[in-house]
């Protein structure tokens, strides 16, 4: 069966609205790096959006957000991705939340495929912790594209997994069970 193309059904980006003045906040990584980001970009993360809303609801000044489970190098990548997508219609991410056949726009394809696999895994995991749907989707699709059609041995090579006889055994799982 031919793969279904989802591009036709993909929601189109809404017409850009006149931009409001950027509200910049500091974001601190787990290893102490302090970066700056536009709040609109940070709202792509459901986790950070909830924190920001908490500050706004209490009328507390938001000076610095701490992201305790993401290191500086990866956080910089996350913020770069969010900055690029801050004008996106939230309906796009929502519509693609559970889609299995995802279309990766060209900017995102270039952004993600230039990363070594280890950095890509860090980025996807950060997106997972921060709940950034679009980045999780595109990241997972990028990894899947690399693995598509690979044999067992090629999968091990691609993902840096040792050969079976080099893999540590555990008391609960063996190759013979």
């Amino acid at each position: 069966m031919a793969p279904k193309k989802n591009s036709a059904k993909r929601p189109q980006p809404s017409t850009p609205k006149p931009s409001a003045p950027a509200r910049i906040v500091k974001v601190q990584s787990s290893d102490g790096h302090i970066l700056q980001a536009d709040v609109r970009a940070l709202l792509l993360s459901s986790t950070l959006a909830a924190t920001i809303k908490g500050y706004d609801d209490e009328n507390k000044p938001l000076e610095k957000l701490e992201v305790n489970n993401v290191v500086g190098f990866t956080l910089k990548l996350v913020l770069e991705w969010c900055e690029k997508h801050k004008e996106d219609d939230p309906a796009i991410a929502q519509a693609e939340k559970d889609k299995k056949n995802i279309f990766i726009p060209s900017w995102d394809r270039h952004f993600l495929t230039k990363l070594p696999m280890g950095n890509l895994f860090d980025l996807i995991t950060a997106a997972y912790h921060l709940d950034i749907t679009g980045l999780i989707n595109y990241g997972c699709k990028t990894v899947a594209n690399s693995a598509k059609g690979k044999s067992t041995e090629e999968m091990r090579e691609l993902f840096g997994i040792p050969e079976p006889w080099e893999q540590p055994s555990t008391s609960t799982a063996t190759w013979d069970d």
């Binding site: 069966m1 793969p3 279904k4 299995k100 056949n101 995802i102 070594p116 696999m117 280890g118 950095n119 895994f121 860090d122 996807i124 995991t125 997972y128 999780i136 989707n137 997972c140 699709k141 990894v143 899947a144 594209n145 693995a147 598509k148 690979k150 044999s151 067992t152 999968m155 993902f159 840096g160 997994i161």
Partner: peptide, 30 residues
């Protein structure tokens, strides 16, 4: 560096779902 086996299970599963419509049939034994 992080490896694919360090990924949260939900993410690992999502990667698999992106392997194609028949990913379970195509990749179960691989």
């Amino acid at each position: 560096y992080r490896t694919i086996t360090d990924m949260p299970v939900d993410v690992f599963q999502k990667i698999c779902e992106n392997l194609g419509e028949d990913y379970q049939e195509d990749y179960r034994f691989v």
